[in-house]
Amino acid sequence: MARRLALITGASAGIGAASARIYASHGYDVALTARRADRLEGLAAEIKLRSGVEAYALPADLADPAGVDAVLAGIAEQGRVVDALVNNAGYGLPGTFATTSWADQATFLQVMLTSVCEMTHKVLPGMVERRFGRIVNVASLAGLVPGAAGHTLYAATKGFLVKFSQSLHLENLATGVHVSALCPGFTYSEFHDVNGTRDQVSQGVPEWMWLGADEVAAAGYEAAEANRPICVPGAPNKALAAIAKVVPDDWALALMASQGSRFRKV
């Protein structure tokens, strides 16, 4: 039987690249998409050599409304279909809502929400028809705790992905399609370098709160296989998520007000 294919967005670094390696190690061919073609081609070559599977580099910008169709067209040109989808592409947009441009916020929503929903909507029917599918939406611990000042839409979009994943999970209990929201906390990757908060988080976040991208990606893979709708990797993050459910909202919001500036540019 032909190998299944996993599509990973935001695959050029961090959790995305780690997810590609994880799926390849479990015998999946992988389709890799992100903006940086050189990174994708290097990762594809590494995966082919290391895991002996096929790896397709499909550069695309999901900020472009045509980006999803471009990626799926590239997969179709190879005569392939998507059996597993890791919606990982994303970034942070520093600043407050009033001091950032709407153009930047609209682009953020396109990448973080619209492209995720569109990609999922376009691959899900085929998964249902074939009675097999795995979908991992990379959300965040930020989607499970109160919002903070700065990066205004980040927690909101991640909270959306959690609810989106829960609904998809319930809708597909009898279809063979497993859906999980992966909700990592602080993860060693390029995320904070890109948005300019590396110094802040390095100084403000203790080492025991950090996880490696490989650990997070492995947890996401295992959650999807087990069909767990929410996965929070790491004991400290699990504890924080549990506490957020029981602490009164005004207490939690006050804590975010006092601590949020350690982690975000406002």
Rank of each mutant, 00 (worst) to 15 (best):
M1A: 14
R3K: 12
R3S: 11
L5M: 05
T9W: 00
S12V: 01
G14K: 01
I15T: 02
I15M: 03
A17K: 02
A18Q: 05
A18G: 09
A18W: 03
S19Q: 01
R21G: 04
H26E: 10
D29R: 04
V30H: 02
L32G: 11
L32H: 11
A37R: 10
L40I: 01
L43R: 06
L49K: 12
R50S: 09
S51Y: 12
S51R: 05
A55C: 14
L58S: 09
A60Q: 05
D64K: 09
P65L: 00
A66L: 15
A66M: 13
D69L: 09
D69G: 13
L72G: 02
E77N: 14
Q78L: 09
A84H: 03
A84Q: 03
V86P: 01
A89V: 00
A89I: 03
Y91F: 07
L93N: 05
T96R: 10
L109K: 01
L109S: 04
S115L: 14
P125Y: 07
E129K: 15
R134Q: 12
G143P: 00
G150C: 07
A156K: 06
G159E: 04
K163M: 15
Q166F: 06
S167A: 13
L168T: 07
H169V: 03
L170P: 08
L170T: 13
N172Y: 11
T175P: 05
T175F: 02
G176Q: 02
S180P: 08
P184Y: 05
T187P: 00
D193L: 12
V194T: 06
R198V: 04
Q200C: 12
E207C: 14
W210Q: 04
L211I: 09
G212S: 15
G212Q: 15
A213C: 06
A219G: 07
G220K: 03
E222P: 03
E222Y: 08
A223E: 08
V232E: 03
A239G: 11
K245G: 11
V247L: 14
D250A: 14
M256E: 02
R262T: 12
F263K: 04
K265G: 10
